[in-house]
Design a protein around this nucleic acid. Structure first.
Length: 269
DNA sequence: ACGAGCGTCGATCCGCCCTA
DNA sequence: TAGGGCGGATCGACGCTCGT
């Protein structure tokens, strides 16, 4: 029976809806951000948990009332971008303003026939799986007085690009998977389908400077005091779902991708 | 050599917050 | 209270890679 952990109920409700072929429906072709959120909202409603949906610019998208859990929804078109996603101005993390944050990644057909289409796969993961740092607080700043007339503002709008669970792992495509920290209690409805380890990097980026004359961006990093620390997670499925194992993609592959991305950025400079 | 496919970057739109 | 500022989201152009 339920442990009282809301994320378990919510995940179970999502899986049930996918099994029952509950479709995403979009209001219009221009609806590029609410269709999947609405689908999730309906599932959240079904759990009976009280929640607040907040406005368009709130993070996370949904916040529970009785507990300090928050849920951030990410809809991705499939086939499409898979390795990473634009999280714009919110760095993913397992904790934000005192709330535990869970991410809901759902994929839907990139070119659906009509305005109703299925959820192709789903990953619900604790934010720590994407980033275990809880200290960084995002702020955008702007610089006024740019340009020959001194009346142009520069928006330093940091936009983050983070790996998706589909990019980090194998076995998550075309399934419904829940990824939680290893010490997180689950109940008998769930079965483990893999152990996932994320290891902290050698260096931490703590700043950067941009030279407007040369268009060079210089990152500033420090040694990570927790370098090498392992964060352990477990992938779960509801019994009755496919038992396909979930594993980390080989780190080398992930590192190569990150290096490629960094190289591409450097080339611009 | 060339085209398909994929990923990245910058553009764009628009709702909401905040402050003057 | 108006509008400047901020943030979420996807789209389109482009360029790289890989297979034929």
């Amino acid at each position: 029976m339920p442990t009282g952990q809301p994320c378990l109920e919510i995940f179970a409700q999502c899986v049930e809806a996918i099994r029952a072929n509950k479709l995403i429906s979009r209001e219009s072709r221009q609806d590029k951000e609410f269709h999947f959120q609405n689908w999730f909202k309906a599932r959240l409603g079904k759990t009976g948990l009280h929640f607040e949906a907040g406005g368009r610019n709130t993070y996370p998208d949904f916040r529970l009332v009785a507990s300090t859990d928050g849920f951030e929804v990410k809809g991705l078109a499939y086939p499409g971008r898979e390795a990473n996603y634009d999280c714009n101005s919110q760095v993913p993390s397992g904790s934000h303003n005192g709330r535990a944050i869970f991410y809901i990644f759902g994929r839907y057909p990139a070119e659906p026939d009509g305005d109703s289409y299925p959820v192709l796969d789903l990953v619900v993961c604790h934010g720590n799986f994407l980033n275990a740092d809880h200290d960084y607080v995002h702020k955008n700043k702007s610089v006024k007085g740019f340009g020959s007339y001194g009346d142009i503002m520069i928006r330093d709008r940091k936009m983050y690009v983070a790996p998706t669970p589909f990019g980090l792992t194998t076995g998550t495509a075309h399934n419904q998977t829940l990824i939680l920290p290893v010490d997180f209690r689950v109940d008998s409805r769930f079965r483990s389908v893999g152990r996932l380890v994320r290891r902290e990097a050698q260096k931490l980026i703590v700043g950067y400077t941009f030279d407007l004359r040369t268009n060079t961006l210089k990152p500033e990093s420090v040694e990570n005091p927790a370098a090498g620390t392992e964060h352990n997670f477990v992938a779960y499925r509801l019994k009755g779902s496919a038992a396909e194992a979930v594993a980390m993609r080989p780190p080398r592959e992930v590192i190569a991708e990150v290096a490629e991305a960094a190289e591409a950025t450097e080339k611009d400079e």
